[in-house]
Nucleic acid binder design. Structure first.
Length: 289
DNA sequence: GTCTCAACAGGAGGGCCGTA
DNA sequence: TACGGCCCTCCTGTTGAGAC
């Protein structure tokens, strides 16, 4: 039930889809010699086409999987993991809801102050599979097929970043809510510094992979970037600890483009307040004016 | 020639809305 | 209520540029 992403989850997706509504032709590519593949193998040179019918199915499956993964954590803290959360005041509209969010209440429509964390799910089938005589045979990891799954794609990364910024610029009500991108693959090296910078800048609190072993034969893959902008979780407990760490203290996102003189003035005024919290509140108030 | 990366293109599915 | 059109989001293959 509450487990990280493994090959068994992908088998579950195919089995569930085949049992409920999908034909094999909607889930697998058919090669020239009649074999059914989840992705075109790198060695395949025959005629190809692009499967579209799987997209929404895997999208929905991975969102539901993410809800299950987070539900146990939420329940223990009297919270709820909710799919498709709408909160218009922070840019989460019915057309573009949050994939998953941890909230104080169970409903889809939420007030900003009742949303504890927002998760954007970017997951896909990671391994390649052959469907033969009703059986699913794993024929290789993502390095052996022509597809480029999940967060390994630059446009998936850009889309996740774009959606997060859209929430951040929708208003100050989103400034207390952490945003996590949940994936099931590593990220490319070209994004190592960028995810760290996004974390330091407060825009996205992490790109988290729930897949502890994305490569076969203990293939080397990144555990985390230098400043933990990307983390690969190897156990549920590790994931829950990271969530606890993230949610334990109330944080505040802020950004600005001001001269050193203006900043100095703001700091000087804020510093007249009595406590650290009051100084911070004054600073945030002034920087947003 | 091969590999990697970013950008682009594209169809399926689903929700919404106007119209008959 | 049914239907069609529009738009958005989903994921995946293709293409071209650049590095080696």
């Amino acid at each position: 039930m509450y487990e990280l992403w493994t090959k068994e989850k992908e088998i579950e997706f195919f089995r569930q889809s085949l049992e409920n509504f999908a034909e094999p032709e909607q889930l697998f590519y058919i090669s020239d010699n009649g074999k059914y593949y989840a992705y075109w193998p790198k060695s395949y040179k025959g005629k190809k086409f692009t499967l579209q019918s799987r997209n929404a199915l895997i999208g929905n499956f991975t969102e539901k999987y993410s809800v299950d993964l987070l539900q146990n954590f939420a329940k223990e803290r009297n919270l709820y993991a909710v799919q498709g959360v709408i909160c218009k005041e922070i840019g989460l509209t019915p057309q573009s809801p949050s994939d998953v969010a941890i909230c104080k209440f169970k409903s889809r429509e939420q007030k900003a102050e009742d949303i504890v964390a927002i998760f954007e799910v970017k997951m896909s089938i990671v391994w390649n599979w052959e469907y033969r005589n009703g059986k699913l045979i794993c024929i290789g990891d993502y390095k052996t097929h022509q597809g480029n799954p999940g967060l390994l794609r630059s446009d998936s990364m850009l889309k996740a970043i774009g959606k997060s910024i859209n929430i951040r610029v929708s208003g100050y009500k989103a400034s207390k809510i952490p945003i996590i991108i949940l994936g099931n693959t590593p990220i490319t090296e070209s994004y190592f510094n960028k995810v760290d910078h996004l974390k330091k800048a407060g825009i996205i609190q992490g790109f988290w992979s729930t897949n502890p072993n994305p490569l076969d034969n203990n293939g080397e893959n990144i555990k985390s970037t230098k400043h933990k902008g990307f983390i690969r979780f190897d156990s549920i407990q590790e994931l829950y600890n990271a969530l606890d760490e993230l949610l334990i203290e109330e944080m505040e996102f802020f950004s600005s483009m001001k001269s050193k003189k203006q900043l100095g003035q703001i700091i000087e005024i804020a510093n007249r307040e009595a406590t650290y919290e009051q100084k911070a509140e004054k600073f945030l108030k002034l920087i947003r004016e």
